[in-house]
Design a protein around this nucleic acid. Structure first.
Length: 611
DNA sequence: ATCGTAGGCGCC
DNA sequence: AAAGGGCGCCTACGAT
């Protein structure tokens, strides 16, 4: 067993062993000496280090409003793991390490800096106010890139150069070359986390920002678990549903082609003779429709539906499109590619999960996990002996608007299980108009009915509308906006175009600015809702873990969670999910009076949950 | 041949 | 006056 000690940035870390190629690193904070000795485990992975940090030692939740109960829970969650990025989370998840809480440097960087592409060198530079343009490089000799004199000097055993940048020989993988470097690199992750924590504390809402950093980090680990576990899928039912839509599994490529042609024929039978338009080509379809008397600007479904009764071709085309969707995206190939059997023989749909997308911070998933057609959802079924606890948040976006704007009238409206009822009464419009108006105000669309309600909304909910308008104005000016959890959402600038006259250019610039306004308006709400949702999910995860429930989150869908749980634990899990909502609201919402509601049900198939 | 974009549509 | 936000994934199509 190797035993190497490395010290730096207030941390003492030492490699104490090797676990199948992964180094085990113990750590000690200089301020924590005498506090109970060595704790923790670091895992060497492709590009990252995971390291345990004791609860509340340096990165802590200091919300005084939380009360003793939550602090007790925090203690029960064990040490807070710190790592550079997702690769470490994947390794820990695969190893089944019970990570109760964590700090993911990459995820926190995305939150604070509003960037998507991250690596240790960039994160470190940003944290130390060093321009990214000055980042040193390695690789083959590049005559255009001159290394600043003295920059790469200093002690090569120090991962940080005298000029403050990370030494590229370290950052590009050399950190794992020796146990000494490994331990040092682990200490550097902790140092980065500490600077991030100070950055978070410097934001206008320090407490909530740090809390969000914790929740976002935990969500990233949850994503690693979601990837690992997959979504339970009843393969036999999936097969049947696909067969219902596009017929049995083709026996050969030729059979596949034949069936595809048959599907096309069903539509083309209603077309005038001559040629064989390609139904997959929008241009061909448009021309085809013109030949039967419909001159449409595009061939989108909602437009076609308006004429569905006017010509059999159009009805056939709409049916064809639905089947084509299954055939191309959610057919047998999709099944073969993304569904694997678990150790008990039950299907699991595996996709890639990300805890924050490129925009406002919602979770994303591939493999159709976030856009599975409703007709296939009956295939999402709990394993024998298990059940699903399903929950979706009710009217989350207007409730979030009430929370982030602090509008007293809107906060009052959240007391109603159906928020739009009191809003409609106050505005003196129908419920439908009120809903369209509120949603339009948040999405930026204020045409037709929603435009009508907008005037009244400004009168009755001035604070909420002013909050949205302020965000929109910032967006129009290309300035970043910040969610309540302090996620930075960057805007884009105006691209210079020379085409057209001055009026046309001005018009384009206005359009781009307007798009930024809508984007910013929406990001403020969608981003905050995403933060709240993730706080809810990871609170349940941590609580369920602490309570020893056999329950795992298997799907997160923006305002919806699906939990796979042993039948005996289902009632307790449902209760815990509701409790977790209250706790998440307590931690996250700046307005304690805002009511959040969730519809929680125990089902055996996803499709049995009311949507 | 490979790439990015656009139209289209699934979901929230 | 008019102005819908986000994502993933498929195909066709024009660019390189």
């Amino acid at each position: 067993m190797e035993f190497v000690e490395a010290t730096g940035y207030g941390w003492h870390t030492r490699v104490v062993g090797d676990a199948g190629g992964d180094a085990i690193v113990e750590w000690l904070h200089s301020r924590g000496v005498g506090r109970g000795g060595l704790v923790g485990l670091a895992v060497r992975t492709g590009v990252g280090i995971g390291l345990a940090v004791p609860g509340g030692e340096t990165i802590h939740d200091d919300r005084t409003t939380l009360g003793e109960t939550i602090h007790d829970v925090e203690r029960d969650l064990g040490p807070r793991w710190v790592w550079w990025g997702r690769e470490t989370a994947d390794v820990l998840a695969a190893a089944g390490v019970p990570v109760g809480r964590c700090w993911d440097v990459t995820t926190v960087h995305r939150l604070l800096a509003g960037v998507w592409r991250t690596d240790a060198a960039h994160v470190w530079a940003w944290l130390h106010d060093l321009p990214a343009g000055g980042l040193p490089r390695t690789g083959q000799l590049d005559l255009l890139t001159s290394v600043p004199a003295g920059a790469s000097g200093g002690d090569p055993a120090d991962p940080v150069q005298p000029d403050g940048y990370l030494r590229p020989e370290w950052a590009d993988g050399g950190w794992g070359d020796s146990p000494e470097r490994l331990a040092r690199w682990a200490g550097l992750a902790l140092a980065a986390a500490e600077v991030q924590d100070r950055r978070a504390a410097a934001r206008p809402d320090a407490v909530r920002t740090r809390s969000t950093a914790h929740a976002e980090s935990a969500a990233e680990f949850l994503c690693a678990e979601l990837e690992r576990d997959g979504l339970p899928l009843d393969i036999a039912t999936a097969d049947r549903l696909i067969a219902d839509a596009i017929g049995p599994r083709p026996t050969s490529p030729a059979d596949d082609d034949r069936r595809r042609a048959e599907r096309d024929d069903a539509v083309l039978a209603h077309a005038p003779p001559g040629g064989r338009p390609d139904l997959r080509s929008p241009a061909d379809v448009k021309a085809l429709l013109r030949r039967v008397g419909f001159d449409l600007p595009d061939t989108r479904a909602w437009r076609l539906k308006q004429h569905a009764g006017d010509h059999p071709l159009i009805a056939a085309l709409l049916t064809w499109r639905k089947a084509e969707r299954i055939a191309t995206t959610y057919g047998y190939r999709w099944l073969d590619e993304h569904v694997r059997r678990d150790e008990r023989g039950w299907g699991r749909l595996h996709g890639e999960w990300s805890s924050c997308d490129g925009a406002a911070g919602r979770m994303t998933a591939s493999a159709g996990l976030h856009n599975l057609p409703a007709e296939l959802r009956p295939a999402v079924a709990a394993e024998p002996g298990y059940a699903f606890v399903h929950a979706d948040l009710g009217q989350i976006e207007p409730r979030v608007l009430a929370a982030v704007s602090g509008d007293p009238a809107l906060i009052a409206a959240t007391a109603d299980a159906d928020l739009y009822q009191p809003v409609a009464r106050r505005l003196g419009v129908t419920r439908e108009q009120a809903k369209l108006g509120v949603l339009g105000a948040m999405y930026g669309g204020t045409t037709g009915n929603s435009g009508l309600a907008l005037v009244r909304l400004r009168q009755e909910y001035p604070q909420a509308m002013a909050t949205l308008e302020a965000a929109a104005e910032q967006g129009r000016r290309s300035e970043p906006v910040f969610t309540i959890g302090s996620r930075m959402v960057r805007m884009w600038g105006n691209e210079q175009h020379d085409e057209g006259d001055a009026d046309a250019r001005l018009d384009r610039a206005r359009q781009v600015a307007a798009a930024r306004g809508r984007y910013a308006r929406n990001a403020l709400i969608q981003g905050a809702a995403a933060e709240f949702f993730k706080a809810w999910a990871v609170t349940f995860r941590a609580r369920g873990f602490g309570a020893g429930l056999d329950a795992r989150i298997v799907l997160c869908l923006h305002d919806e969670v699906l939990i796979h749980v042993a039948e005996a634990d289902a009632p307790a899990s449902a209760t815990l999910l509701t409790d977790s909502l209250a706790e998440a609201a307590h931690r996250w919402s700046p307005e304690p009076a805002v009511r959040f509601v969730a519809d929680v049900t125990v089902v055996s198939r996803w499709s049995d949950a009311k949507g």
